[in-house]
Design a protein around this nucleic acid. Structure first.
Lengths: 212, 212, 212, 212
DNA sequence: AATGAATGAGGATTCATTCAT
DNA sequence: CATGAATGAATCCTCATTCAT
């Protein structure tokens, strides 16, 4: 326990972060329209009026939540991929479990659900996510794939579709967990999916292994 | 076009279908909470009050839309899989493009988005989809996979995760198309994904090919 | 049983009466605003549209119901009172049970409730009831009382208040029955009230008895 | 009057009372269904939305109005009756004018009208009124009557019907005033009714007087 | 800065009334 | 005459946003 930090002493510079964290929970549970500003405020430990000192509108809170979930994670992926000059199969065997870890640690699934669900109401958010997260991630992957193709490690084919083949099952797992596990579906073991799918997909992508 | 259709004629039987079709559009665009009954009614070519002759609440319309999207499609998958006593790789080469076709023909992507986006607000719909669509589809697939494993056609491993490996990229493609294409992302060629991913994933699942 | 009268052969001249009878039930149960035209039509055995062939508005139906309940009953009272040249105490001993009978036979209580409950929304109905029913009844009574006072049969005092003393308990009984018996209150035996109250009130009104 | 009262000040505690007072007026005028929340709010000096900070539904407001009219008044009656060890005729001569006073001072007539008019739509309110107001009042009275009968002061007979004989005319007067006076009927002088009816009914109920 | 009472625009739902058949 | 599908005005209620304290 921390030394009895009085509620009113919470440093104001933490507020936006607190609000975003609370809002993420609520938006993920209720969707944008179903979320109530008052509940976000309550979970952030402040009053409705105070929340409006930090964000001008509910939409602004939503945008902040979705944008904030962008930056930290994409960088991790980039580092992981770029730093590696190892063979493609090694990269994949490391990358997929890493993605599973990240997805489990941060509420990426919840945000993804929000982006998918509200993409028509907030097209500019879908755009930000596309441009700054998804496209970047796919590009990093497909670049790596093309390099591996050039090196003869990966079978020919559209590198972007190969990227879908790599990460699609992981995404499916995340959405499954967010959507169906709360209503009684079996638990999803993301790391297990990562490990087994890595082997499955590599079996097909790695020409070397087959040729052997 | 018919010549000067009267403002309304007795077509009670067509109404529910018209309403569901219009509602699917609007719900897919705006989400449940963002959809306005009046707009659904207008797109269905009738007035607000008339819609309420056929559905008691907005929720009832939503449920009808989501439930109606269930029945017709799952059966197609089952027929495709069960009817085949062909080798596993043939099945997959036929199945994935078939799925791509279905997804393209009917608005399954839109409904899927709705189910994912509103699963917390309508858990019983998520449950129906899980029980009647997703679980059935996965079970059909994993049964086929287990049979193929028994016959030595497919490498060992959790059959459900193998099923994820099979269809995950297709689902990712659908959601991508629903979410990002409207905001400027590249078009998604589902049949191309189906063809290429079939080869990719089979390369790994088919022990025979490797052994050869 | 009558010889199978087909529904569609119901003579149209009966319709207004059928509608009023059905409407009386529904208005008494739900009040004016709570009553639905469709339910009135259904109970009258016809469709909503058909009802509008006989009455232009819901208000018109309500007015007809309340007015129709006026005529038949006030006349009975008048006859009973005027026809009697018997002593006052005989009159009362006959009149109160007669009122109890009428009230029990026709749904006067229900209409009374409606008049009381909707008097502010339909002041002209309250006026009709006041002018044509209540005031007449009171006048008939107070005239009889004044005559009896002149004959030395009834103690002095405001004749209208004496009339209240005569009929008040009966009215209380009717409203009690309409209001509280449906929610579990004891049954009200109107004839018993009539008999006992007649003796009670006469004991006071009849100077002769006391003087003797 | 206070000088220039600010548009609003913190007066959360006064609100429910203000709202109930305004609602009583409006419900009495229009009935439950005819009353508009916005008008209640306006008469209470606040906006529609503010009213909903204090009551969750229109029904809740109605219930509060009716229930609030219960408590204060029944106690007065009980005290009046219980405190008296005077002869029965003295009690009645004191009680009826007391009832007339109460009815005149508080809007009991309006509430009674509401209870009668809406008893079918709000049976639980009719029950509360029956159990907590009417039955108690009647029981208090009939107990007093039975005691008086035991002492030989009151003629035999069903004590509850005797109670009706006592208070029926007063109730009739109240409802008359609520219903017919607004449409042009003569004013009702409740105290006069109380005084004259007390003498009238006692003349009959008091054996002593007659025997003498 | 913080609060929370107050506001009112917005949207779901009802139901009297109309009218094509 | 009879029907019942269709309409839309009316009203309850919600909740993002404001603002006096």
């Amino acid at each position: 326990m921390m030394a009895e930090e009085p509620r009113w002493r919470r440093r104001k510079e933490d507020r936006p972060g607190d609000i975003c964290a609370a809002a993420l929970q609520v938006f993920a549970e209720k969707g944008f329209a179903g979320a109530r500003i008052e509940e976000i405020a309550r979970r952030a430990g402040l009053s409705k009026g105070t929340l409006y000192l930090y964000f001008p509108t509910k939409e602004a809170v939503f945008r902040a939540v979705v944008r904030d979930a962008v930056a930290p994670n994409i960088e991790v992926i980039r580092q992981t991929v770029l730093a590696s000059d190892q063979p493609f199969d090694e990269l994949v065997r490391m990358l997929l479990p890493r993605v599973a870890e990240i997805i489990t640690a941060v509420p990426l699934g919840a945000v993804l659900k929000m982006v998918v669900g509200e993409s028509r109401n907030f097209p500019e958010l879908a755009k930000v996510w596309h441009d700054d997260v998804v496209l970047k991630a796919v590009t990093i992957l497909s670049d790596a794939i093309e390099n591996a193709q050039d090196r003869g490690e990966v079978r020919p084919g559209d590198s972007r579709i190969h990227a879908f083949s790599l990460v699609g099952p992981m995404l499916l797992g995340v959405l499954w967990r967010e959507t169906f596990t709360p209503v009684g579906a079996a638990e999803i073991d993301l790391p297990a999916i990562a490990r087994q799918h890595a082997e499955t997909v590599l079996g097909g992508l790695s020409i070397a292994e087959k040729a052997g």
